Simulated scan of single mutants.
Amino acid sequence: MSTDFPTSLQFDGIAEFVAVARLGTFTAAADELGLTKSAVGRAVSRLEARLGARLLHRTTRRLTLTSHGEAWLEHCAAALDELQRGEAILKLAQNRPAGPVRIDLPTAFGRLYVMPVLLDVAARCPALQLNVSFTDRLVDLIDEGIDLAVRIGEPGDSTDLVARRLGVQQLVICGSPAYVAAHGAPQHAADLAHHDCIAASNSPHRVAWLLKQRDGSIAPHVVPIKHRVCDFEMVLAAVKSGHGLAQLPLWMVQDDLSSGNLVTVFDGMSGGEVPINLLWPRTLALPAKIRVIVDALLDSMRQFPVTARMQ
Rank of each mutant, 00 (worst) to 15 (best):
S201Y: 03
T25K: 06
C125M: 04
P116Q: 10
W251H: 12
T3A: 11
R282M: 10
C230D: 15
L138T: 10
G110Q: 04
L211Y: 00
A190G: 05
Q303E: 12
L128W: 08
A189P: 03
E144K: 08
Y113T: 05
L47V: 09
A108E: 07
A285S: 12
V172H: 00
L166A: 06
V150C: 14
A78N: 04
L51H: 08
D81W: 02
M252I: 07
T264E: 01
T3V: 09
R50A: 12
V139D: 03
Q303L: 12
L73P: 06
Q303G: 14
D120K: 09
L161Y: 09
P155N: 07
S67T: 14
R96H: 12
G41C: 07
C125L: 02
S258A: 15
K37N: 13
I14N: 06
L257G: 10
R42A: 06
V162D: 06
I276A: 14
R54M: 06
K226H: 06
D256M: 12
Q84F: 08
S259H: 09
A15H: 04
I198P: 05
G41R: 12
A178N: 03
W209N: 00
D295L: 04
D140R: 13
H195T: 02
L171P: 00
G167C: 04
L192V: 01
S259L: 07
A200E: 13
A108N: 07
I293N: 01
D136V: 06
E16W: 08
L90E: 11
L245H: 04
T159K: 11
H57S: 10
G24P: 07
L192S: 00
A178C: 01
A43W: 13
D157H: 05
L33C: 02
G145R: 06
L248R: 00
I290M: 15
T7M: 06
A78C: 01
R165G: 11
F26Y: 15
P281M: 03
C174P: 00
L130S: 02
L130F: 08
W209V: 14
R164N: 05
D191C: 13
L245F: 07
E32K: 13
D256W: 10
L63K: 04
R50W: 09
Q10V: 08
G175K: 01
F232Y: 07
H75I: 08
L130A: 03
F134I: 01
D136H: 07
L105Q: 03
S133N: 11
V207M: 09
H205M: 06
V292Y: 03
L279M: 09
L23M: 11
D255C: 11
T135N: 03
C174G: 02
R50H: 03
G167Y: 07
I103N: 05
T66F: 03
S201I: 05
A71T: 15
L130V: 04
L23S: 10
P100Q: 11
V162C: 10
Q303W: 08
D147Y: 03
V168E: 14
V306S: 11
G216K: 11
S133H: 09
V207K: 09
T64A: 13
